[in-house]
């Protein structure tokens, strides 16, 4: 079960913030084009940083807590992190922005 820990946590992040979109009225997932445009620089910049850091052995990924599927030099979970976490942040921001607009 340990191997699912990282992916499971990401799933939890998505699940817990989903009500913000459905009930809270944040329009993040409903604007996929805007979402992808926002995520693209995050993935490129921080993915690049991550790759560099791994190359310099600043950190590494535990085989115990990841599924072991690697993509372009990083675990799949790490790439998903750069999609999930910014999306959660955007949902938070959008919900707060929503409340101001009638």
């Amino acid at each position: 079960m340990d191997r699912w820990q990282y992916l499971g946590l990401l799933g939890l992040c998505v699940t817990m913030t989903l009500p913000l979109e459905i009930i809270g009225g944040a329009r993040v997932y409903r604007r996929p084009k805007a979402l992808l445009t926002t995520l693209a620089p995050v993935v490129v910049l921080f993915g690049g940083w991550d790759l560099l850091a791994v190359r310099h052995s600043e950190w590494r990924y535990s085989r115990r807590y990841t599924l072991g599927w690697w993509l372009l030099g990083l675990p799949v979970e790490e790439w998903l992190f750069f999609l999930v976490v910014p999306a959660c942040a955007m949902l938070t921001y959008e919900v707060l922005a929503r409340r101001r607009r009638p």
Partner: peptide, 23 residues
């Protein structure tokens, strides 16, 4: 203000989550 509020909320989740992730 809502940007900083959203940042603060994100940070409040991020720190424990990342801390737990970074074994």
């Amino acid at each position: 203000g809502r940007f900083w509020l959203a940042t603060a909320i994100t940070l409040a989740f991020q720190v424990p989550v990342d801390g737990w992730l970074s074994k």
